[in-house]
Each structure stands twice: as structure tokens, then as C-alpha cells.
Design a protein around this nucleic acid. Structure first.
Lengths: 169, 169
DNA sequence: CAGTTAGTTCTGCAAATACAGAACAAAGTT
DNA sequence: AACTTTGTTCTGTATTTGCAGAACTAACTG
């Protein structure tokens, strides 16, 4: 018999959490929110479950049971989330299960990345300005204006986080 | 014979623009950029064409020809872009064609909307915090931290635009 | 009124997506 | 060695998407 297992195996924290209707409905809404961001449906719902779950980390088969989907779908979705660096798993001694959790700790970097990503349109604007003639000056001016703002915006991102820190203290 | 048409019909600005390989390749890249944002392929390419086109406004059938797609696809894509308020058309007296253009003028509002949209996750975070127990205090703290930042961020958006204006002058 | 132009709506299909279920692999258990 | 657990990979399929082509509408034209 295993030395470490018994205590952990009987740990009440490791029993399946009971989800209320409110939990389930919230998970679905978080799911569609992420669908709109281009993710596949199940991925969004897994994010919802990991957010809502009391333990913060949920085993593979609990995800399968709670969301009522196949193992293969969950496996693929978790592979995707890990590839995107949004999710990691940890293990316990004497327990072969993997407990999956959101990488909530680096929300700052994630958010900064998202901001930089939406500002990435600047590269295209600038390329467009290179190929455009001066035939339509007004149009070009508006684009230059936008490009300059995007440059300004990118520079401001770090300052934004700093101001938040100061304001928080 | 129509009174106004001849002059406009022979206006060199209204002849089909010749797209170089560079133009075409840039349009494609702008297309996939927008695809990644969740838009359908053709919509992204139309945005690319409208950005790159010298006139800034392009007739329905020139879009069809330049992109080599069907009228129905273009019609649906333009309906979508207009519904999303990213595009408008204007007409000329004695010319039944519609000339489509990007609403480049309100990039400020569009960009602000995008920023608010990515901060919309705050609503879900707050709802999640409402349903969570205090079982996992650290997890909750990180979420609260993130929510507070998102609130701070939303408030900062108008100030950001103002600072840009001042810096510009 | 027959014919043209400009665009929309409908119908159908080819390809992509998202998932289920089965087969499979790896490791532990008895 | 047979069996169980934990998950992955493969295969098939229902659904959705994105578009083409045809039919249609509306307005002008001769």
C-alpha cells in the first residue's frame, strides 16, 4: 500500500464540487464570451469552470464529468490552453491525476499582451501608408493620425501598470 | 442622355485601380489579421482593399473584380461591415453605383470600444467572486487584484486620449 | 415594354469545426 | 501477467461556415 496516498485521497478538498445552477449558468456565459473572442466553445467553458471552482484546480476527469463532454474533447482543449500558456497542471505524490489551473498569476503580462496585440494594426496602417499615393491626402492624414496614436498608446502601456501600482499602495 | 453622368463617368478617379503584387499581398495579410480577430475571411480582405485603394472609396463591382469573389459574398460582407458601423457608402448624382469607404474618421471611438470590450471580462470576474467561497483565499485575491486593475483601466481610457491630444499639439 | 445595370436574397454545396467514441499507450496495482 | 487508472490519439460524423451561382428586385434606358 502507498505511503502518502491515503491522507490525500481522503482529503475532502479532492471530492467533486457541487455546482449550483448559478455556477453552471455563469460557466456557460463565460464560455460564450470566450467563443466571441475566437476560442472553441469547450475551451471557454473550461476557463469558466476553472474560475468558478472552489479549489482553483480541477482534475481531468472532474472537468469531463462537470461539463458532460468526452475525454478527447477535454484533452484537446487542455492541450490548447497549455500551448497558449493560460493553464498549467500540477500533480500530487501518490496520485496520478493531473490538476489543472488557470495561470491567474500572470494576468498582467496577459493583459499587456492583449493590448499590444490590438495595437498591432499599426504595422499594417504603416505599410498601407507606404504603398499609398498622395492622391487622397485627407484619407492619408487620418491614417497617419491613427498610427501616431497607436504608437503613443504602446508606449503608455507600461506607465499604465505603474500608475496602477502606485494608486494601489 | 443624362446631364451629369458624362463628366463623372469619364473621371479618371473612377476607373479601376491597378493593384500591384505588393498591394495584393498586403490585402491578404490584413485579411488574415482580421480573420484572427474572428471576422470572416472576405470581410478582412475588403477592409484591406478599402485601406489600400487610392480613392479611399470603392464601388461594389470593383470589390467583386479586385478580390475575385461573387457578388453575393460581397453583398453579405458589406452588410456586415455596415451593421458594425465600420463602413458606409456614398453615391454620385447620375451614378447608381455605391462607393464604399471605411469610417476611418471615428477610429478613436472604435479603438475606445475595443479597449472597453477587452476590459469587459471584469464583469465576469466580479460575478465569479460573488459565487466563490473563501476556501481558496489566494486565488480570490489574485482575481480581486485583476478586477481592480480592470476598473482602473476603464477609467483611464478617456485620459489616455486627452494626453495624446495634448502631446500632439 | 424589352433590355441593362446594380445589388440582394435564396439555394446548395465544399470545406472546416467541434466533438463523440473507440482504440491505444503508459504506468500502476494485484 | 491480467486488470485498472489516467489520459492521448485516431476515426468518423453532425453542424457550421463561407462562398458560388441562380433567381430575383428595383430602377433606369432606349
Amino acid at each position: 500500500m502507498c505511503i502518502f496516498v491515503p491522507l490525500l485521497a481522503h482529503n475532502p478538498n479532492r471530492t467533486k464540487m457541487v455546482l449550483t445552477e448559478r455556477h453552471k449558468e455563469l460557466i456557460e456565459r463565460i464560455g460564450v464570451f470566450h467563443e466571441h473572442k475566437g476560442m472553441q466553445p469547450l475551451v471557454g467553458r473550461i476557463i469558466g469552470l476553472l474560475l468558478v471552482h472552489e479549489d482553483g484546480e480541477v482534475s481531468f476527469d472532474e472537468i469531463v464529468e462537470q461539463l458532460g463532454v468526452s475525454k478527447s474533447a477535454v484533452s484537446n482543449a487542455l492541450t490548447f490552453l497549455q500551448a497558449k500558456d493560460r493553464c498549467i497542471y500540477s500533480t500530487r505524490p501518490g496520485d496520478r491525476k493531473r490538476y489543472f489551473a488557470l495561470k491567474l498569476s500572470d494576468w498582467r503580462e496577459d493583459f499587456a499582451k492583449e493590448l499590444e496585440n490590438i495595437a498591432e494594426i499599426q504595422k499594417f496602417i504603416d505599410e498601407v501608408l507606404e504603398v499609398r499615393t498622395e492622391k487622397n491626402h485627407e484619407f492619408n492624414c487620418k491614417m497617419k493620425d491613427f498610427s501616431e496614436f497607436l504608437g503613443f498608446f504602446k508606449k503608455e502601456i507600461p506607465a499604465l501598470f505603474e500608475r496602477f501600482k502606485r494608486q494601489q499602495a
